[in-house]
Design a binder for these strands. Structure first.
Length: 329
RNA sequence: GGUGCCAUAGCCAAGCGGUAAGGCAAGGGUCUGCAACACCCUGAUCACCAGUUCAAAUCUGGUUGGCACCU
């Protein structure tokens, strides 16, 4: 028997399976089943599960739940370390390579659409185009002169971006300015180029969804569960470890709200309310993101009578259409 | 039964004669190095009826509903 556990029609393109969907929809359990049936390894596309010591709030899969399926990009950083798309991209590529070498099928699982996109389309973030100092300076200037002034400056050098980015979106205005100063090129041009790229992978992009009401109810339940499991304690420990409010890890849902509670800004009840509400907002945004991605295969649970077997057979059908299949051993 | 107060979008809430602030929720969207981020867009004719007035959510009367107090 060959070491190759998959076959693909497009020889030049390597296969990639993506399983995503809004938070709390049930990606994890389906991913394990999928990985076991296909002989796959999982690459987590989640901006918070990369952090150690952040298990409850990030709804991280527990080791025993993995059922032996290899997982990548989980627990790889300390909460004080920063993380962003480019780091994700780099690490995910490395993981991919290993998976291919082992003759396994990569299954990208997670809800961070931007990360998935970066990996799937192999977006070039232009490695040289970042400068912490410059960014800090721009931020200081923005604070001093106000967002309108900065936005006007952007309008002069890159009208297209200025039109696309509202002045209120300081973060993006700064990035556009930073990009221009560092490369001498307009970020709008760069983005256009990147956007027209074709994926180097032979991929199947699955989006698991459910009815909005059901999803929201599940989110509420899950948050209550997190509280019961000790989310507050988890955050307290992170604080004791010296994690700062401004760290990337503390931007995560559940964490930043708890920080507000510990800062005495509001009650625990209010923190819980905020976590639920913000998580609902997040789920909605995720759905918006997936809607505009190309070639996604929707898996609305209600259309399958919530029967995982039926969802699995749909997945297998789609995979065989694409010529991606497991070489059963 | 009587008296008083109130009645504005799913919720909270401005307005007090000149043609309906705002916040939250909800929905839609943007996104190419912080993305579980950041940001953008969308909603009512003011309980109902009849008056006064050039003009009423805003004044008057009545109806209905709620709250408070009294008997």
């Amino acid at each position: 028997m060959s070491e190759i556990a998959y076959t693909t029609n497009e020889i030049q393109k390597t296969p990639m399976i993506i399983l995503t969907g809004p938070t709390a929809v049930g990606k994890t359990s389906l991913s394990i089943r999928l990985a076991k049936e296909l002989g796959g390894e999982i690459i987590s596309a989640d901006s918070m599960q990369v952090y150690r010591h952040m298990d409850i709030g990030s709804a991280k899969i527990r080791p025993e739940e993995m059922e032996g399926v290899p997982h990548h990009l989980i627990d790889i950083l300390e909460p004080t370390e920063s993380f962003d798309v480019t780091v994700f991209q780099e690490k995910a590529r490395q993981a991919l390579e290993g998976i291919y070498q082992r003759g396994h099928l990569p299954i990208v699982v997670g809800g961070t659409g931007f990360y998935i996109q970066a990996l799937l389309y192999d977006i070039d973030f232009n490695d040289q185009a970042q400068d912490e100092k410059l960014r800090a300076d721009l931020e200081a200037e923005m604070l001093e002169k106000g967002p309108e002034v900065m936005h006007e400056r952007l309008a002069e050098i890159d009208p297209e971006s200025a039109e696309a980015i509202p002045a209120g979106n300081r973060k993006r205005v700064i990035r556009a300015l930073e990009f221009y100063q560092l490369t001498g090129k307009k970020i709008s041009d760069h983005n256009r180029e990147q956007r027209s790229k074709e994926s180097p992978y032979n991929y199947a992009y699955f989006v698991l969804t459910d009815e909005r009401e059901k999803l929201y109810a599940r989110i509420d339940e899950r948050v209550d569960q997190m509280i019961k499991e000790g989310l507050a304690e988890e955050v307290k420990k992170l604080l004791e470890m010296g994690v700062q409010k401004t760290d990337t890890s503390m931007q995560g849902l559940g964490y930043r709200e708890m920080l507000g509670y510990y800062d005495g800004e509001y009650s625990m009840d209010h923190a819980v309310y905020l976590i639920k509400r913000n998580t609902r907002h997040f789920a909605k945004r995720q759905l918006t993101w997936f809607r505009r991605e190309r070639d996604v295969i929707w898996l609305p649970k209600q259309d399958f009578s919530y029967d995982e077997d039926r969802i699995m057979s749909m997945i297998h059908r789609e995979l065989s259409k694409l010529g991606i299949s497991a070489m059963n051993d």
